[in-house]
Amino acid sequence: MIEIGLTGWGDHPDVYAPTSSAKDKLVDYSAHFPVVELDSTFYAIQPERNIRKWIAETPDNFRFIVKAYQGMTGHHRGELPYASVEEMYKQFRLSIQPLQEAGKLAMVLVQFPPWFDCTKENVQEILFICKRLEGFDIAIEFRHQSWYSSDYQEGTLGFLRKWNLIHSVCDEPQAGVGSIPLIPETTRTDKVLFRLHGRNVQGWRNLSGDDQAWRKVRYLYNYVETELQEIQTAVQKLNAETEEVFVVFNNNSGGHAAQNAKRFQKMLDINYESLAPKQLDFFEGEW
């Protein structure tokens, strides 16, 4: 089974009804896609009331890929807003527990930064995180190329298999050691994650030092037909090897993610059932 979705539900105007307000965006989104990557959890551990609201707004079979809080993965700068590391993990677990209880938690995505390279110390850090997230399905995404070097690639995949971790396959710009190659390999028989970041090589690295401006251009990319065909080949390989392939388009900056995802869905001849009812037929336009 192939489940296609997007990162977040707040920046995809193509899927919203004309009369919808901001509070309706998730409802509109869930009329089109069966899964979403919840990235607000990366910036702040969400209060339980938000989680329960999102559970209530989505169909029974809708699922969330929850991105791990930045304080867990080495992205956070400055002092953590928690009394201790243990308290941070406790609050994160409590926050997402309702999703798991509702059967709507697909996995927790633990994405490491580009400077998190393949070392013994960092392998131990992964195990440290996994121990504190025990009981949840965990996907691991690397950004440093060393994990997939000729010396370490088999060891990396073997490590993920040994600890029952989901491999986050990525399509992203090939821009040096801070990006990884497309390696369509599964490490579990039930789930694999495939995230598409676009191929904006110039925008991938922050050469200006301006984080805000950089984030606007990093994921500015529109996949063309031939590129989607390459992705299709990789996804079909993964689909033959595991029960569920979660495909998430993250090229949001220019509004291309929804269009690309809809086009990809059409290429695969996928029609999702039991989604929230679409409000207007014109949502089924040419993608």
Rank of each mutant, 00 (worst) to 15 (best):
A234L: 07
V66S: 10
W147I: 07
H12R: 03
V201K: 13
G178W: 10
N250V: 05
Q153S: 11
E284C: 04
N239G: 07
N252P: 00
D171H: 14
H256M: 05
P98T: 05
E284S: 13
I180A: 11
F33W: 09
V15L: 10
T73G: 04
V66K: 07
D14Q: 06
V224H: 13
F282Q: 04
H144Y: 04
L193G: 10
K216N: 12
L105M: 10
L280F: 14
G178A: 02
D11E: 09
G178Y: 06
P34C: 09
H144W: 09
H197A: 12
P13T: 06
N61K: 10
Q265T: 15
G203C: 07
M72W: 09
R199M: 12
P114A: 11
E101L: 05
Q70F: 10
L99A: 05
D24S: 05
Y69D: 05
K90W: 00
R49C: 07
V15D: 09
P59A: 02
P47F: 01
V224A: 02
E154S: 15
P98A: 01
E273L: 15
R52A: 00
G255L: 08
N164M: 12
S149Q: 02
F116A: 08
E37P: 06
E48C: 08
H12M: 01
L127H: 06
I4W: 08
D39C: 00
A68W: 15
Q70H: 13
A68Q: 13
P113H: 13
V35N: 05
L268A: 09
H32G: 06
C170S: 15
E225M: 05
H256S: 13
S253M: 00
P173I: 14
Q97V: 15
R188V: 14
M267E: 04
R143G: 05
F159H: 11
S150P: 01
P173E: 15
Q46F: 00
E172L: 12
N271Q: 14
Y29A: 11
S146G: 01
N50F: 09
D211H: 00
T187Q: 10
R143Q: 06
Y219S: 04
T7F: 00
S20L: 04
Y223A: 08
I129Y: 04
Q46P: 02
F282L: 08
P81Y: 14
S40K: 03
P59L: 02
V85M: 00
T242C: 11
Y89C: 01
G255K: 09
S179V: 12
V36K: 00
A17Q: 03
L196N: 08
W214Y: 10
G155P: 03
Y221I: 09
A213T: 12
V177K: 13
E57C: 02
W204S: 00
G285A: 01
V245E: 01
S95N: 01
V27W: 09
F62R: 03
F194L: 11
V192H: 04
